[in-house]
Amino acid sequence: MSKTPLVDFEKHGVICVATIRAAKVLDAVNVNEFGREVIDYVEAHPETHLLINFQHVHYLSSAVLTELLRIKDALEGAKGTLRLCAVNKDIRRVFEITNLDKVFVIYDDVGSGVHRYERALELEAEDESWSKGRG
């Protein structure tokens, strides 16, 4: 019998929302499974703009922070980007203590996250076309 995946992937326009649905706790025990599912998706779908949704996650440990940095590297290596959303206040404090709130863009919830992420990508594309125009 196959195991239920930890992460659901769902396309919302140009953004792919990765919702961690099957685990309230992400720690050293299941972090490899989480990382493998996301990296497998990224390898199969280059140039993905991924929004990881933590709305069902109550707790995470530093092993997950390490995994998120690996995922970010994998995405950037495949011309993609990574942003996060819907972390609870305790998890947000973990990001702040470790200064990773300066590394990851974190949106309050999925709805505003998708909207603002799309807008940020549009602005980046406009900036790029202006730069090319000037060159």
């Binding site: 530093s62 390490t66 940095l69 690996r70 973990v94 203590i97 470790t98 990773l100 590394v103």
Partner: peptide, 16 residues
């Protein structure tokens, strides 16, 4: 740890 450094955050949290 530096911002993009992979390891060392467990101890950083403990120290905090």
């Amino acid at each position: 740890p530096q911002p993009a450094q992979l390891r060392g955050r467990g101890l950083q949290l403990i120290r905090h």
